[in-house]
Amino acid sequence: MSTELDTIQTPEKKAHAHNWQRPLYDVSENDDAFIVRVSLPGVNRDGVDISLEEDTLTVIGTRTSQVPEGWRPLRRELTTGDFRLSLRLNVPVNEAKIKASVENGVLDLSLPKADEVKPRKIKIS
């Protein structure tokens, strides 16, 4: 009986293995770079994983501050899943110079524009 139950439950567990949510984010732009701010509450710098594959930028935030064992919930509004955000970049960026910092649960990403898309000043001679 117990083995039968096991076989039924196992695939379901696998399907729910990871609970992702898309974080809130902002994108802004200045002359030199695109600035992406991603809200990752409960994630410190060790929990952030950033990758750029072709034109897809993926940010994964794994929660580093968990609710301690033994706390019984009285009311829950917060989501508990880890964060995953994929952004497709439609402009070339200078991959080598991407900078990232994490502070107070917010990831600041600076994606420098590739030279060919920077605005060019034209001098009048």
């Binding site: 701010r37 990752l40 509450p41 609710v67 706390w71 019984r72 009285l74 509004e77 649960g105």
Partner: peptide, 17 residues
């Protein structure tokens, strides 16, 4: 979120940034 254990009540706010 609001939690309790035997000694305390806890409120957890998400305030990124």
């Amino acid at each position: 979120d609001l939690y309790e254990d035997d000694q305390n009540f806890y409120a957890r706010f998400e305030l990124p940034g």
